[in-house]
């Protein structure tokens, strides 16, 4: 049993682990694939704990049966190979079938007449990305100076790190209603509220990663910078900023992930039977889900959002990450 199922399964899981480790050099997969690869070993473990006891029972029962002719090691290996092929084969067939079904369902849904809202999708995507960019710029504008200040003052660093940890670990979405109500009451602008909500989903990732990066700047390099009389700005320019660049990129990738997450909730908001919304991919998705229940619209918004996320990862974050880890690596 071990030979037939668990070994291949754990090599499969190992492969994910390996890719995960290797990805510290170059990102193998960003976004949704990362989630998958993290799950690989866990899936194996879970499957194993569910399946092993009954299989072991069956195995015992079989072992208790009267024995037929002894198989030679060569023969038993061949039997194992056949059984393995059968099992893997049936799994592959099942998965293919499931995929086909899914695909057919997808095509069938999309071939229904598209709602008129669909025309808004490009504009919605653009507006949402703009909100994300603004929130990201605001995050950068305060976290980078904070990180630089932390690099100047160990005491500020010691104070900031635990505070950031506590504030950052509070579920931002829980604060959404309060933020929205307050902001709308004060300014009446749902756009501003939405950007602030995205900000709460972004900024902490950035701050965490930047602080972690600051703490990794080697002591001897800091000493060298001071011993050779670098001014504060020269020190930032030549040492601190290059050294935190990889952390900045990693932080940005996670921040954008958190941002998209918050975005979905941030553009559409119902309070006291009144709907507050701004045009964006998040509000299209929410409206389709909670109001019209239009399957085509849900699917279209989801797919276009996934497409944007994947494109951004491919075209921007992955090259930036590779560049940063290549040029600003701290080993020398």
């Amino acid at each position: 049993m071990d030979m037939i199922v668990w070994q291949p399964l754990s090599t499969w899981a190992e492969k994910f682990k390996y890719e995960f480790a290797a990805s510290s050099g170059a990102v193998q997969s960003l976004g949704m694939f990362d989630a998958l690869s993290g799950v690989g070993p866990a899936v194996t473990r879970a499957l194993r704990s569910i399946l092993v006891p009954p299989i072991r029972l069956i195995g015992r029962a079989i072992a208790a049966l009267p024995r037929g002719p002894e198989l030679s090691p060569e023969q038993s290996r061949r039997v194992a190979a056949i059984v393995r092929t059968l099992i893997i084969g049936s799994i592959v067939i099942f998965l293919t079938w499931a995929l086909m079904r899914g695909f057919i369902a997808l095509v069938r849904t999309l071939s229904q007449p598209w709602p008129s809202d669909a025309k808004q999708i490009p504009e919605a995507i653009l507006l949402s990305t703009l909100r994300m960019t603004l929130a990201y710029a605001i995050s950068l504008a305060w976290t980078v100076p904070c990180a630089l200040a932390a690099s100047e003052s160990p005491r500020f660093n010691r104070v900031l790190s635990p505070i950031a940890e506590i504030v950052g670990s509070m579920p931002a979405t829980a604060l959404f209603p309060i933020i929205v109500i307050v902001v709308i009451q004060i300014t009446g602008g749902m756009n501003l509220a939405s950007i602030l909500l995205i900000l709460t989903g972004m900024q902490w990732y950035l701050l965490f990663n930047l602080l972690a990066g600051i703490n990794q700047v080697p002591e001897d390099l800091k000493e060298a910078a001071r011993a050779f009389g670098l001014s504060r700005t020269a020190r930032w320019r030549k040492l601190i900023l290059p050294a935190v660049t990889p952390s900045l990129i990693t932080g940005s990738i996670t921040a954008w992930g958190g941002g998209w997450n918050a975005l979905i909730l941030s553009e559409y908001f119902v309070y006291k039977n009144q709907t507050y919304q701004v045009l964006g991919i998040g509000s299209l998705l929410d409206a389709a889900t909670y109001k019209s229940g239009n399957g085509v619209m849900i699917l279209l918004s989801l797919l276009s959002m996934i497409a944007v996320v994947l494109l951004l990862n491919r075209l921007m974050w992955r090259p930036l990450y590779n560049l940063a880890t290549e040029r600003y690596r701290l080993d020398y």
């Binding site: 001897d220 290059p242 690596r329 020398y332």
Partner: peptide, 23 residues
């Protein structure tokens, strides 16, 4: 320094120039 303490992202020339800006 024992550990050399060179800035890995600067060329040899830029590393050697490190203390010259301050002068």
């Amino acid at each position: 320094f024992q550990s050399f303490a060179l800035l890995p992202w600067l060329s040899v020339k830029a590393n050697v120039e490190l203390g010259l800006e301050a002068q």
